[in-house]
Structures are given as C-alpha cells and as structure tokens.
Deep mutational scan, measured.
Amino acid sequence: MTFKAIINGKTLKGETTTEAVDAATAEKVFKQYFNDNGLDGEWTYDDATKTFTVTE
C-alpha cells in the first residue's frame, strides 16, 4: 500500500510517499525520515486517505 506524509515544518514543507504493508510500518519509516531531517511536531493520521500529517 502507498502511504503519504504531508510535512508542515518550519524549515521543510512538502509531501513524500512510502510503500508499506501497514500504517504502523509506514509511520516508522516517516518518523525516521523526519528525525533524520530534524523535524519534530504534532502527528495526525487519516486512515481513509492513508495520509500522515506532521505540523511543526
């Protein structure tokens, strides 16, 4: 399945996608990506659209 992340950061904005077997796996991938890029913020997840949003 394809999962999307919308990034609303102070220094980084945009979208990225990942292929994962479930939402928990996708969340781990996205959180690692955000940690690697120095992002920290509020997380939400919309199961209907398979979209994570992080707002810094």
Rank of each mutant, 00 (worst) to 15 (best):
G9H: 11
G41W: 15
T16D: 02
F52G: 00
E19Y: 14
K10M: 10
T25P: 00
Q32D: 06
E15H: 09
L39G: 06
A26D: 03
K10H: 13
D40S: 13
W43E: 01
K13F: 12
E19G: 03
W43K: 00
K4M: 07
L12Y: 14
A5K: 02
Q32K: 13
T51I: 04
D40V: 14
K13P: 05
K31E: 04
T44D: 09
K4W: 12
L39R: 04
I7Y: 15
T16Q: 11
L39F: 15
E27Q: 14
T49N: 07
T16H: 14
V54K: 02
T53F: 13
E42L: 09
E15R: 03
F30H: 00
T11M: 11
D47V: 07
F3L: 01
K28Q: 13
K13Y: 13
N35P: 03
L12W: 15
E19P: 03
D47G: 06
T16R: 13
A5D: 04
K4I: 13
N35E: 14
E42D: 12
T44L: 08
D46A: 02
E27W: 14
T18E: 02
N8A: 11
K4Q: 06
G14R: 12
Y33G: 01
T16G: 04
E15K: 04
A5P: 03
D46I: 02
F3R: 00
E19D: 10
G9T: 14
A26W: 02
T25G: 07
D47F: 06
F30M: 03
G41S: 06
D47C: 06
M1P: 06
T2L: 12
G38H: 09
T49D: 03
W43V: 08
D47S: 09
V21E: 09
A5E: 03
D46E: 06
A48I: 10
A5F: 15
L12P: 06
V54D: 00
T16P: 03
T2K: 12
T55Q: 08
Q32N: 08
T49G: 03
K50H: 12
A24H: 08
F3N: 02
G9A: 06
G38N: 10
I6V: 12
N37R: 14
E56S: 08
L12M: 13
D40N: 12
N37V: 14
D46C: 08
D40C: 12
E19I: 15
D22L: 02
L39M: 11
V29R: 05
A24L: 11
F52V: 01
T17A: 06
G9Y: 13
T55K: 07
K10I: 13
E42F: 12
W43I: 07
A48C: 07
A23M: 09
G9N: 06
F34I: 11
G14A: 12
V29D: 04
W43G: 00
D40K: 13
E15F: 13
E19T: 14
D46T: 02
D22S: 06
T11C: 15
K13I: 09
D22K: 01
A48D: 12
A23N: 03
T55H: 08
K10T: 13
F52H: 00
Q32C: 06
T11N: 12
I6C: 08
K13G: 05
N8Y: 13
A24E: 10
E27F: 15
K4Y: 14
T55A: 04
T18M: 09
K10C: 14
F52I: 01
T2N: 05
K50L: 10
V29F: 15
A20V: 03
V54W: 15
N37S: 11
W43H: 01
W43C: 03
I6M: 05
V29L: 11
T44R: 07
T16Y: 15
A20W: 02
D40I: 14
V21Q: 12
K10Y: 10
K28D: 05
G38C: 09
G41M: 14
N8I: 14
F34M: 13
E42K: 10
E19N: 12
F3T: 01
E42Y: 10
K4S: 05
K50Q: 09
A23V: 08
D40M: 12
G38Q: 07
T16K: 12
Y33L: 10
D46N: 09
Y45N: 00
V21G: 06
A5H: 02
G14I: 15
T49W: 03
Y33E: 03
T53C: 06
I6E: 04
W43Q: 01
A48V: 10
N35C: 13
L12C: 15
N37G: 06
T51K: 01
G14Y: 15
T18H: 05
E19A: 07
T51Y: 01
T17V: 10
D22A: 01
V21F: 12
T53N: 05
T11A: 07
V21W: 10
L39S: 04
T25Q: 12
I6R: 04
Y33N: 04
N37K: 15
T55E: 09
